[in-house]
């Protein structure tokens, strides 16, 4: 099963449950308060997902390591390498 199919399967399942409950297709006669909580459910889900995404990406950007030491080490090694290679007869 491709990832696309997995997503479609999941979304179909969720929307079936949501449609059944919010239009009361099974005749369960759920109390009014429950129904009011159920119908905006997809919007809640989207909002939660959006917030989660923004928070995760924001946190990861903020904690993305800046490898200053690695850059400095590399610069030093480049100089060292050039010297050593010139000594061995490399013409740049």
């Amino acid at each position: 099963m491709t990832k696309l199919m997995e997503w479609l399967f999941g979304l179909t399942l969720l929307s079936t449950v949501w449609l059944t409950l919010s239009f009361d297709l099974l005749g369960l006669n759920l109390p009014e308060t429950y129904q009011q909580a159920i119908w905006p459910f997809p919007i809640y889900l989207l909002l939660i997902f959006g917030c989660y995404s923004l928070a995760t990406i924001g946190f990861r950007v903020a904690t993305f390591n800046n490898c200053e030491d690695a850059a400095r080490e590399l610069q030093d090694q480049i100089q060292e390498a050039k010297k050593d290679l010139a000594r061995r007869g490399l013409k740049f």
Partner: peptide, 16 residues
Amino acid sequence: NGGVYGWDLKRKIISR
């Protein structure tokens, strides 16, 4: 300890 050097904020946001 992984990371990058020489990327500005925009590049980091796109990458993440």
